[in-house]
Nucleic acid binder design. Structure first.
Lengths: 244, 244
DNA sequence: TACTGGAGGGAACTGAGTGCCATGAACTGA
DNA sequence: TCAGTTCATGGCACTCAGTTCCCTCCAGTA
């Protein structure tokens, strides 16, 4: 009810009354932090927000959804990002960048993210919900990689494993940042974690490794510049060792 | 808890009346397959099973749990298996074996597993529940690896990533078997998938690699026998390259 | 002014999950 | 054999999430 559903028109610079969806999120979090998630009913939320109970479920399909109000949009952004790339992109780099997209969403609202993190740690239902959200991210990444790996032997397997590794690394970095109450450098933590994944699964040699598969019988000699991302060398060793 | 109503007395060798828990599972699956999961109420199940409604929730904390009646035991088996190993075990091999434990549970009842797979694919609620189950397996593996990697730089990160990769590989093999209606060789599919993970993350050299970090300035020379599991070489290259 | 379509409100219903208590069977100690 | 205890079960009533159906209010429009 009331005014300013801010439909159209150009005149808006923070309207006095926030849209219903936002007030529901605000009311929900206030109550969740005060008395806990399970001790708060949907009726409590809508009463505090001053809207009808029915409206809650118009904006959020379930009580859990109000805790993750922006994941739907973020997931859409990610799939958009993945499908908008070019064939020249390194697939692993691309999915790492896609993961960074999610991190950015968290980093945009540090206090909100930290509060939510504490909630999801405590409430099993929310943890389960978060898992299903993360799963959708992972499937988006895996789907992209499966396409890029189409035709390769064990393509879908590698796609699934890499997607899982990227998500695990992202979550590891993200959570260490969240545990620091949003004080540290989120991007640095996640970058470092994703670097490890890139080094493990990253594509072929691109940085000064010289590889000499010799002694055809049973020996391979590898010469590498110190400082070369060693996992890039590895991919080449692999192919030469498997060449038989 | 959760199992063994078989309280006291030694005389039991399949009692004529199946225990309540089993009849609940049987009734539930019969109805789920007939009319679908969401179209079946708990009242329907207990009526068919001939027990009181209250008893359902004594054996299964939620309606979803009846679909995964043996995961609790399997998870206990896994943690038991992980904690019973010796320090000589290769950590990656150990978690792969732990994953094979889960596979065995699925493979013991192929038709049941396939039916459940079809259900979980269709019903979002069950998929979410399965995710939380898988998550607990993954945390068990990661917890074990974290201990084994304690003190290493990025130990928890590697633990998390390897655990995620093992789970993803396991699930990839398992699902391809489930999609074949349990016709193929489950163990072979999962073994192959886990082999890839072991090759990627497998531990240090144990099979005839000779490694010579020389040329202290900027070159590393590696000599490896052809046929050596190449990723075992890698771990050594890593340590010598990072030695600075 | 009347029509229309969409946003919100509200009552009533379904079904999952819980708390409480009664019942009845098995065991125990006289 | 009888009272007392324990424990699994049944049954009832309650809370609360989520849905269905219908109403109101308002804006835009012919």
């Amino acid at each position: 009810m009331s005014e300013a559903p801010r439909r159209g028109t150009a005149s808006d610079a923070t309207p006095p009354k926030p849209p219903i969806r936002d007030s529901l999120v605000a009311a929900a979090f206030q109550l969740f932090l005060e008395r806990g998630y399970e001790q708060t009913t949907v009726d409590d939320i809508v009463t505090l927000a001053g809207v009808g109970r029915r409206s809650f479920f118009r904006y959020f399909p379930s009580k859990e959804d109000v805790v993750f109000p922006d994941h739907e949009r973020c997931l859409a952004d990610m799939t958009e990002f993945l499908s908008s790339g070019s064939d020249d992109d390194d697939p692993v780099e691309r999915v790492c960048d896609a993961a960074r997209l999610v991190l950015r969403m968290y980093a945009e609202n540090p206090t909100f993210s930290v509060q939510r993190y504490r909630l999801t740690r405590k409430v099993p239902g929310l943890r389960a919900y978060e898992l299903s959200v993360v799963w959708r991210y992972e499937r988006a990444l895996a789907g992209y990689l499966r396409e890029r790996f189409a035709g390769r032997r064990d393509g879908t397997l590698h796609a699934d494993v890499i997607a899982a590794a990227v998500v695990a690394a992202h979550n590891n970095g993200l959570r260490s940042w969240l545990r620091s109450d949003g004080q540290g450098d989120a991007a640095a933590a996640v970058d470092h974690a994703l670097d490890q994944v890139r080094d493990t699964f990253g594509a072929g040699v691109s940085g000064g490794a010289r590889i000499t598969p010799e002694e055809p019988e049973d020996v391979v000699v590898v010469i590498s510049k110190r400082g070369t991302p060693m996992w890039r060398v590895v991919r080449e060793i692999e192919s030469s060792l498997r060449e038989d």
